[in-house]
Structure formats: C-alpha cells, structure tokens
Amino acid sequence: MAEGKDEKKYTTISIPTPLAEKIKKRIEGTGFTSLSSYVTYVLREVISGMEEESEEVFSKEDEEKVKDRLRALGYLD
C-alpha cells in the first residue's frame, strides 16, 4: 500500500499484493475511493474495538496491581 501525497500526515505500509488485489475487488461499488481509505477504516475499527475491550476487563493482574497500591496506602492488609 503506497500513498504519499502529504508526507507529513501519511506513512507507507506494505501489505501482500494478492491481499491488496482482494481488497480492491471488495471495495468496488462501495463508498471507499481507495485501498488506503478502506484499510485505514478497518484498522481504526479494530483498534477502537481493542481499546473498548481492554477498558472493560479488570483482569487478575489489574486486581493485584490495585491491591499492591492499596496496601502501600494503608487501605488493605
């Protein structure tokens, strides 16, 4: 994937050519005007989903970190 009209705002990422061709076919007739705009959209969705997911899960590791801090503050034995 190579787009470089504005070098300050964009960077170049390589993906396998067969995948690029597949995506081009997939976006035909959709509102996406380029391979880059589609891939940007997909990546944003993926990252946003990951962030939401990580916010929701209070893991055992998180709990241990919290308990350590509460002990340091004198709120837990």
Binding site: K65, V66, L73
Partner: peptide, 26 residues
C-alpha cells in the same frame, strides 16, 4: 496524590493508571 501519600515513585505508572481506570469503570 497516591504516590505522594505512599512516598513511592511509580516506575510503571502507565500500567497502574490503566488498572485503576479499569477498576473505576468496573
């Protein structure tokens, strides 16, 4: 405020932040 109260210098502050944000949300 926590670090000042407990007199600690948290070297993993970003991780601690994440854990407390998650606790608060949960």
């Amino acid at each position: 405020s926590m670090e000042k109260m407990a007199n600690i210098n948290d070297t993993n502050r970003e991780e601690t932040r994440e854990s407390f944000v998650k606790l608060n949300s949960m």
